[in-house]
Computed example of a mutant assay.
Amino acid sequence: MSRNRRETAQVRRATHSGSWYTDNASELNSQLSGWLTKCERVDAPVRALIAPHAGYYYCGSCGAHAYKQMDPAKIKRVFILGPSHHVRVSGCALTATEKYRTPFYDLIVDAKINSELNGAGPFEVMSIDTDEDEHSIEMQLPYIAKAMESRKGNFTVVPVLVGSLTPEKEQMYGMIFAKYLADPENFFVISSDFCHWGQRFNYTFYDKSQGDIWKSIESLDKMGMDKIEKLDAKGFNEYLKQYQNTICGRYPIGVLLHTIEAMRKVSNGYKLSFKFLQYSQSSKCSSMRDSSVSYAAGVLMMY
């Protein structure tokens, strides 16, 4: 998984800061605080979230609706599952670094959990090049650092790069992660944008009965979001097969849904529900020459 630049490093640099989001900590703090202040809290304990990973200019305000729900007082460890955009990964991969840098402060990688996961199933290890090239995990880090700032230095992160998985592999990893999701001291962040629409994405599905193209895209996305809210792993997979919607975090979402299924098999004592809190598009497409990316923020509540 190397691109022959650097094989190892103790710290993963914030390689997308200064371009995808500001590298000025004061400016970034003001920006995130402003978005978070405008969001409301749900009246339930939240144990996982789905948030977008595009540049903050496009999706930062959307992601705030999910990150508003993190309760740092109850969290000791944050699992971050993001899709691989640049390299082929047949399973899941863990970081080889000790820290992930953000403009706020460094996030400490949980070496103990990495070791446990390596012993529990087929996990690869990312080269530092693969780690630093990938934005899907990095774009969650400033928000995690901001939401968890009251526990700076007292929590860890477990970054997981998720490859193109079969439903069987999603189920396998779900069984591995189930015990961690069941632990109330753990929190899961699932990194995903939704529909990438337009000729530049080789995806132009258009249901004219919905009206404008952007309305068709929203309808398409919300069909998938409905499967997620119903915690229906099989239904979500069937939806993807039918419509081929270009949801880049489809595999991390699939792992989460299978994790929930596996956890339910071990214990039926949990009351679970998923709710999407915000949906947006980078632009409203009106012609076949246009393009857009959709964003959604949602949370898994567990009682």
Rank of each mutant, 00 (worst) to 15 (best):
H196Y: 11
E238N: 03
S84G: 05
Y100H: 03
C62Y: 02
L231R: 05
G163H: 02
V11K: 09
M148H: 05
F177P: 11
A64G: 04
S33N: 12
S209P: 03
G254Y: 01
V78K: 02
E149S: 15
C248N: 05
I213L: 07
R77E: 09
N154A: 10
Q171G: 09
F205Y: 14
I50D: 06
S33C: 07
Q31C: 02
D207I: 09
K208F: 03
Y58D: 04
V11D: 00
R264Q: 15
S283T: 15
D43N: 13
I217K: 01
Y21N: 06
S2L: 12
S286Q: 13
Y295T: 14
M1P: 13
M148F: 05
H135R: 00
Q171E: 13
R77G: 04
L161G: 12
F104N: 01
M175Q: 10
Q242L: 12
Y173R: 08
L94V: 07
D106F: 08
N245A: 07
E124F: 10
S219G: 04
M301A: 13
S273G: 12
G163C: 08
E238C: 01
A73I: 11
A9F: 02
E229K: 06
V293Q: 11
E168T: 07
A120E: 09
A233Y: 08
F194S: 00
Q210A: 15
D133S: 06
L94C: 00
L277P: 05
S33T: 04
H85E: 06
D110Y: 03
Q242Y: 14
Q31M: 13
K112D: 07
